[in-house]
């Protein structure tokens, strides 16, 4: 609001730093204890890389992280496309159809995971569909779509219908109106929907447990079934933090760089 330095500004920065400290405390803790010499999560007894070594020797853990990422990527891609297309369609549908569809859409968000999980398992069992990585992915898509739609719908409501109408009147095909007019306007919402979908899929345990078959186990299933805490999981998480940081930084850096380049070109013209 105002740029002058003030105690108020000092206070607000201090507050944000405290919030960040709170949020990063356990993550730092996990990273620290991934170097712990002992199995304990309470006392740090010395520096060692043994959990990293153990992790890279643990084929089951590496496979589970591989499947987690593959399933999350597929589920995110499919649910983002289906969710975006459905949200645009619904925004133009009759209010009654729209509100019914959106209420149903909310069910997987409202329902406890265990209910969604059991209901999907019942579906697969009664349809005699053998559970596998396919059913697991279907289940993930099912609970990811609602988050995509929830993220896009408010943005669509703010859109001016007339712009798309105008595009159609000016001879654009519906497809062009969609890809050239509507989607660019809601792009940030689609992206945030996709991010939420990915993190939901990445972190899910209960629904995965009931919908996966013998061929696949994701990282949450692996962690939850540990009888004793295996600190290799700390090492794995520390690496995930590093990887996610790199991905997010790149994801934000590239558009920014491109923008700067564009601006430069504009300027030169």
């Amino acid at each position: 609001m105002e740029n002058r330095k003030s105690p108020w500004r000092f206070f607000s920065s201090g507050y944000l730093i405290l919030v960040l400290l709170f949020i990063y405390l356990p993550i730092g803790y996990v990273m620290l204890f991934s170097f712990n010499d002992s199995k304990s999560m309470i006392s740090f007894s010395g520096f060692s890389l043994r959990w990293y070594e153990a992790m890279f020797e643990n084929r089951e853990m590496l496979e589970s992280i591989y499947y987690t990422v593959v399933v999350a990527l597929i589920a995110t891609a499919v649910s983002t496309v289906v969710g975006t297309v459905a949200a645009i369609g619904l925004s133009k549908a009759r209010p009654l159809l729209r509100s019914i569809a959106l209420e149903i859409n909310n069910l997987p968000v409202l329902n406890p995971d265990i209910v969604t999980a059991i209901s999907l398992m019942l579906l697969f069992l009664s349809a005699k569909i053998q559970r596998s990585i396919v059913t697991l992915t279907l289940a993930h898509i099912t609970f990811c779509i609602p988050y995509v739609i929830l993220s896009i719908m408010p943005k669509l409501r703010q859109l001016d219908d007339n712009v798309a109408e105008a595009a159609l009147d000016l001879g654009a095909s519906p497809r062009q109106a969609l890809t050239k007019v509507i989607i660019p306007q809601i792009y940030p919402a689609i992206l945030s929907g996709a991010l939420i979908a990915f993190s939901m899929s990445f972190d899910d345990f209960v629904i995965s447990f009931f919908t996966a078959g013998v061929d696949v186990q994701n990282i949450s299933m692996y962690v939850y079934s540990m009888k004793r805490f295996n600190p290799s999981v700390n090492a794995l998480s520390a690496l995930i933090v590093v990887a996610v940081t790199i991905i997010l930084v790149l994801a934000n850096l590239i558009p920014a760089l491109r923008e700067r380049k564009n601006k430069k070109e504009e300027y030169q013209e």
């Binding site: 398992m121 697969f124 069992l125 005699k128 053998q130 559970r131 009931f210 078959g213 013998v214």
Partner: peptide, 9 residues
């Protein structure tokens, strides 16, 4: 519960 399905362990 898992063994109620067709899963072949």
């Amino acid at each position: 519960l898992q063994l109620q399905s067709e899963d072949a362990w």
